[in-house]
Design a protein around this nucleic acid. Structure first.
Lengths: 140, 140
DNA sequence: AGCCTTCGACTACATCTGTAAACATTAAGT
DNA sequence: ACTTAATGTTTACAGATGTAGTCGAAGGCT
């Protein structure tokens, strides 16, 4: 079963899309770490997330690999290890996810989502104040 | 107002939570059909969604079974077949999903989500007007 | 020059999801 | 009664996901 393998795998396969693949929740946690500060080594990413999520290094490694495969992050060699940095901007990710939710659940309209948040008391006073401020700004 | 259905879940609650299991996207499509009109037979659900999603009856059957297993819908025998009706209210589902998104991506604060929608021009004028109206209502 | 540590790569594996076929049952028509 | 069409149940299977172990190369240490 353990097939001897000496070939070097292409890390650079599909050049097609860069940010198109869906990012899972666990992967997202890794992305957050990288968005907060980058580039980071795998060990540094682990420092940021392993405790919080109860993960071990291998898990982080896997997630990093998958993110690289998905084109969400890039690696650059730093001596013998890699530094990871995001390719996908946090803004783009948030925007995409938000839009997906709004499209899927609220027919693409943001107002019903807002109404729901309000209803379920997911809106703090601060939120409301902030949103009013944003609205005024939009009005300009 | 969006104040939704009552909850009439009680018949057979698994030991644990009742609406707690996550509902997948495909399952959600089935739920939408049932929320729109219920109770429905499996065949009727299929009529509602199979074309739109390119599904076959077996697929719908599977999804219905899984939804039953998750406690999101209930069956009642109608002759030899079953009628399906939602146990999980649409309102609750939407609220839950919205909150999940807000928690996961925006640190539980709705304002940043709102800011994002605004920024990415995902807010129509109608949305803005509607939200202002909702805000005024909240202020009361 | 070897041994140990450190990393990335590869492999593993259970669960969930999407999608569906095979099977069993049973009402219904003939 | 016997076949058939409808309907729920069981099983299947590939791909994604969560989580992690193993392997082999590269450097560092003695």
């Amino acid at each position: 079963m353990i097939v001897g393998e000496s070939e070097m795998a292409e890390v650079n396969d599909l050049p097609g899309e860069q940010g198109s693949e869906r990012i899972s929740e666990a992967e997202h946690a890794v992305m957050e770490a990288l968005w907060e500060k980058n580039p980071l080594t795998a060990a540094e990413v682990c420092e940021q997330v392993c405790d919080r999520r109860g993960w071990s290094m291998p898990t982080v490694k896997t997630l990093l690999s998958r993110l690289v495969a998905k084109g969400a992050i890039a690696t650059e060699p730093d001596g013998r290890r890699f530094l990871y940095r995001p390719l996908l901007a946090r803004t783009a990710y948030l925007g995409g996810e938000s839009r997906r939710l709004v499209d899927r659940l609220f027919g693409g309209r943001a107002a019903p989502l807002f109404a729901h948040l309000a209803e379920t008391e997911a809106l703090t006073d601060d939120d409301i104040a902030e949103i009013e401020r944003l609205l005024r700004e939009l009005r300009k």
